[in-house]
Design a protein around this nucleic acid. Structure first.
Lengths: 233, 233
DNA sequence: TGTACATCAGTGAACGCGCGTTCACTGATGTAC
DNA sequence: TGTACATCAGTGAACGCGCGTTCACTGATGTAC
């Protein structure tokens, strides 16, 4: 697949806006700076497209404080980036829960969650990249399948599959594996779109619909006991 | 999905091996250094896990030449990284073609290609990351669907789907869209495995098998004219 | 109510480092005469 | 066959820069007496 890049390394980010001095927090309000730093970090990650390209000095500039002030709230740069990304996971989880709220039919719930997922990713491409495609921040998190199934957002997907099975709408597959397959397929679509931006792919919603038809059809109980989705022993 | 990283930024790569002086190429053999530089660049990208973290000086150290020598063969760092990554796409294409060689049944051809793809990715995780997950090198490549369908590796997938349709084994879907769906699903699986390394996912081959059953089943003509895969107007 | 003082929320200057790149140069080697 | 010389394949030193982080400090502010 000879995808040939045009420019291999992004330039080192032109001289950034000096950013006005911020007013010093009053006594007892020191945590305010922490929040401002996290906001600025996310914004810079978004602007640079990668956590690796965000410097602590740039964060301080954006906030309007001096570089050492960051060290009042975070022990080092790694912890700062970590904390900023962690926020985004919570945000995605909330978006998924909200999208599935008030929908009863499991199939429509999954469809709504998928759409919400795709839109979150495309509306926040750089955050999604940092959360899901960058090696640095999140790859080393260790979790069992059970812990993962309990994480906000994913929990609702797994629960919906389980619900569909109990109601006889879905085949009696492993809900965790089925949810994983859906996640992987949609994540695959979204990442191709995000990473291979120059590729003239068909409309993402058209692709998602094809994807959902495949996935949901494979889950549906109505077409017989064949075509199993393997469950994990 | 509260995947929480343990360390958000990889350390700046400990003092690298000094690497012995290389022997100067003889007259007329200047291109040898170019190849050595590309080899070293790939190796460093693999070692660092990201093109962004590879410096021209580190490449020169690894090759055993001085930094300015790189500029005899590449105008700047971006072009160097570009050239190194481009090589890997050719490699993946060759792997896919080889895997599909001598297999007649379209279903088995697709299965073999998928397996080869997954193994290439897992055997060369850092190269795959740079090729498929990094924003920097390849995201800006502009290609139409037609150009993409002609790229080595992907061409064989599309051709196999088309062949299956002609033989009446697959439904009369758009071969390009069907190939894209397969690519996206498998790419999604592989990237979750690569990026969320700490997640105790089920065995990748088990997941791939579930994925293939879903995808191939959706393609198969035998179960009627329903469950269409949308084609692009 | 007035004032001394501890603490909070930062600042300002500096550290040593590796980076991408340029510039002037040099030594070996093949070629022409 | 011998030698002058153009060229090839690099080298060595230096440039200015931004980085992450440390250190000693300072000024405003709330509190205790």
């Amino acid at each position: 697949m000879g995808a040939v890049p045009r420019s291999a390394v992004t330039p080192p980010a032109a001289a950034p806006a000096p950013a006005g001095k911020r007013v010093r927090a009053r006594r007892g309000e020191g945590e305010r700076l922490r929040e401002e730093i996290l906001d600025a970090t996310i914004e810079l990650i978004v602007a640079e497209g990668s956590a690796d390209r965000v410097s602590t000095r740039a964060v301080a500039r954006k906030v309007g404080c001096t570089p050492p002030a960051l060290y009042l709230h975070f022990p080092d740069k790694a912890s700062l980036i970590y904390a900023a990304c962690d926020r985004q996971f919570d945000k995605l989880g909330a978006v998924l829960h909200e999208a599935m709220d008030d929908i009863d039919d499991p199939i429509e719930r999954l469809r709504a969650a998928s759409l919400a997922y795709v839109h979150f990713a495309l509306d926040h491409p750089e955050e999604y990249r940092v959360m899901m495609l960058d090696l640095s921040p999140s790859s080393m998190y260790e979790a069992t399948l059970e812990e993962m199934a309990a994480s906000p957002g994913f929990d609702a997907i797994v629960e919906t599959v389980r619900d569909g099975i109990e109601r006889g709408i879905f085949k009696p597959v492993d809900p965790m594996v089925a949810a994983l397959m859906m996640w992987a397929a949609i994540h695959g679509l979204v990442s191709l779109r995000l990473v291979k931006g120059g590729l003239a792919l068909p409309d993402i919603e058209v692709l998602l619909e094809s994807c959902l038809i495949l996935e949901l059809d494979g889950l549906r109980a109505t077409d017989g006991p064949d075509t199993p989705v393997h469950s994990q022993p």
